[in-house]
Simulated assay, not measured.
Amino acid sequence: MKLLTFIENGRQRLGVKTGQGVVDVARALQAVPEAGVAQTVHEVIEGGQAAQAALEQYAAKVSAQGGEFLLDESKLTYGPCVPNPGKIICVGLNYRKHAEETGAKIPEYPILFNKFNNTVNAHGHDVPLPKVSSKVDYEAELVIVIGKTAKYVSKENALDYVFGYCNVNDVSARDLQLRTHQWLLGKSCDGFSPLGPYLVTADEVGNPNELAIRCIVNGEVRQNSNTADMIFHCDEIVSYISQHMTLSPGDIILTGTPEGVVLGLPEEKQVYLKDGDVVTIEIEKLGSLTNRFVAE
């Protein structure tokens, strides 16, 4: 199932993508009432398998009926597919070829840092280029969305705690990121985590460690890899983090970026993002996330 958030009259609403269009869940429930159907992304996540199954069955039923609650996706204004993540945990240097291109040592343990909710952004929205940076870079990444409380989970069972996956552009102001040993400043500028367009449930994605991943800048493919190149795969990441902190439904984990970022180029060839650039992140089964970058 593909969930999305869209904005109507300034409010975020839950949509489910179907072959007939996007089901406006709240509007459908007014016309075709049914108990136990969640009306926000976070209600679905927190409701577990029962909430997911109820929504999927309901969306299939009402989409088959048709009606005004089926929307044309091309006319929607998207919201973040995970509107209010709890923790935003990021894994750095997690693709072997990316570590090699930046001259970094292959990490022995996952390198963890965090971002904040001010970075959350959506498909189709502008990303501001901060006045204080001249080196803003793109990073195509797979996001893990936690679906169940996880503490001390094994690698073998870790993916049972995942609700689904989505695209993110882990936008990075390299001059701010590398100013000190802590990366936080360069990662946490406003709008620096566009998420979407869809939150795709784990059952539809299958193995997250075998997904094609690309980044396209102004029509040019800059990153072209596969999640198989991860140093620490998704099950290892969830298990590792859960040994140190409790993961809760709605937490998201950004799993690192493959080779092809501007930072990995020789210095004389580095051309960072500028006003008007359009960046698309594509991950197999998850759709395409596109944003324009604009001078602040």
Results as ranks from 00 to 15, higher is better:
V171H: 01
K155D: 13
V271F: 12
G19A: 11
C215N: 05
Q30R: 15
A54T: 14
G48H: 11
V32Q: 14
V294E: 00
P197L: 05
V91R: 02
K61T: 13
T40W: 08
A53F: 10
Q52E: 14
I213D: 06
P85M: 07
N167H: 09
L3D: 09
I281G: 02
L71M: 06
L265F: 14
E141W: 04
A38T: 09
D137V: 01
C81K: 03
V261A: 13
L289Y: 02
D190G: 04
E139C: 10
V127I: 14
N9I: 00
A228T: 14
K87R: 13
G264M: 08
G19M: 05
T257Y: 05
D175A: 03
E43C: 08
E282N: 03
R174H: 07
L159R: 11
K75P: 09
E141V: 03
T255D: 06
H233V: 12
G219M: 06
Y240M: 07
D175L: 01
G147M: 06
R96P: 00
N218P: 14
V279A: 01
P33M: 04
V37S: 06
V153D: 13
V261Y: 05
G19Y: 09
N291V: 00
G66K: 03
V41Q: 09
E34W: 04
L263W: 10
I106G: 07
T255M: 06
G86K: 03
D160W: 00
L254P: 10
V278I: 10
E220Y: 12
F116G: 12
I111Q: 12
A212E: 14
E34M: 13
I45K: 04
E73Q: 11
G21F: 08
F192I: 02
F293Q: 01
E296L: 06
L185N: 01
N167R: 05
A212Q: 12
M1E: 12
L70N: 09
I241K: 08
I7S: 11
A26E: 15
T102Y: 00
R214Q: 15
S242Y: 12
A50K: 15
K2I: 02
L289I: 02
Y161M: 05
L265I: 02
F293E: 02
D277G: 01
D229Y: 15
S74N: 10
L29G: 07
N226L: 13
Q65E: 15
P258A: 03
H123A: 12
A122H: 09
D24Q: 09
L254T: 13
A38W: 04
E259D: 15
G15S: 08
